[in-house]
Structures are given as structure tokens and as C-alpha cells.
């Protein structure tokens, strides 16, 4: 497990987290390349299905990154995202997975450093949890329509 490199999906909102990721790049702040960003207009757009599908397809961790609480470009989208992430965490627990495999993170557009730091911390956490149980072959995926 020493060279284990987890695959991590970050759903980032266009207005804050995605911009923060660009900002980290423009400041040349390094973070683990394990993190792959999928851009969404608002974290409120991220459906529980998207997170679950990502895990089912093989993601070892998924996080949703949006604007700071109270600063959502769409008023309350990030607050709804937080609730949804909590719901997914509950489902994971019920399935016997570590709920830490999904997380909700908030940052403003200017926080390139924070983007890098959270990417780093999340990757470390997933590394400590090890691969997702599906890719370890512990669980067989039932056909999900």
C-alpha cells in the first residue's frame, strides 16, 4: 500500500473553488495531482447521485468545494450542498464505508493557498483510509440503473 495513489474527484463551483484552484496554479502552489476537478456552476448542482456514481466508478474520495458560507453566488446553493454531502455520508456509514471519503469544503475565490491545503489534507486522509472498497474487490457492484 506504500505507493498507493488514490483517485479523488473534486466538484468545484465556478465562482469560488474552481477560481481558487486556478489561483493556486497561478501562484505555483503545489498540491497532489490525485485531485481531478469537475466544474459545476454551483455546489448546489452536485447531486447525491453524482457523488455516489463517482465512488461506484472507482473514486477513493470525493469532495465538494464551494464558496464560503454566506457568500454563495447563488445565495444558498452551498448550504444545500452541505446537507446533501451529509446525507451521502450517512448512506456511506449505512453501507459500512468510511464517511470521511466524502467531504464538503468552503473557500473563497482568492484562497489559492486554502485550495492547495485542503487538497493535500483530503488526499492524505484518503491515503490513510486506503482504496475504495469496490476497487479492493470487497464489494460487488450490483447493477444500478
Amino acid at each position: 500500500m506504500e505507493n498507493y495513489e488514490p483517485e479523488i474527484v473534486a466538484f468545484c463551483c465556478h465562482y469560488c473553488a474552481y477560481t481558487a484552484a486556478d489561483m493556486a496554479g497561478s501562484k505555483r502552489i503545489s498540491y497532489p495531482a490525485n485531485v481531478k476537478i469537475i466544474r459545476v456552476p454551483c455546489t448546489g448542482k452536485v447531486d447525491a447521485i453524482h457523488i455516489m456514481k463517482a465512488l461506484e466508478k472507482g473514486a477513493d474520495g470525493v469532495y465538494v468545494a464551494g464558496c464560503l458560507e454566506g457568500d454563495c453566488h447563488f445565495k444558498t446553493g452551498n448550504a444545500r450542498a452541505r446537507l446533501r454531502v451529509a446525507r451521502v455520508q450517512k448512506i456511506l456509514e449505512d453501507l459500512g464505508w468510511e464517511k470521511e471519503r466524502v467531504a464538503m469544503i468552503n473557500m473563497s475565490a482568492g484562497m489559492g493557498e486554502r485550495f492547495a491545503k485542503t487538497a493535500f489534507e483530503f488526499t492524505e486522509k484518503i491515503k490513510s483510509l486506503g482504496p475504495n472498497p469496490i476497487s479492493q474487490g470487497k464489494i460487488e457492484v450490483q447493477a444500478v440503473s
Partner: peptide, 17 residues
Amino acid sequence: NLRDQNTWAHRGQPRQA
């Protein structure tokens, strides 16, 4: 986004990039 979110951020790790 191959530059801002990849080669700029991971310029020290070309293989991963």
C-alpha cells in the same frame, strides 16, 4: 484546464502532471 490546474500546480512532478 491543463495549465492553471495541472502544469502550473504540478510543475515539480512531471510524471504525475
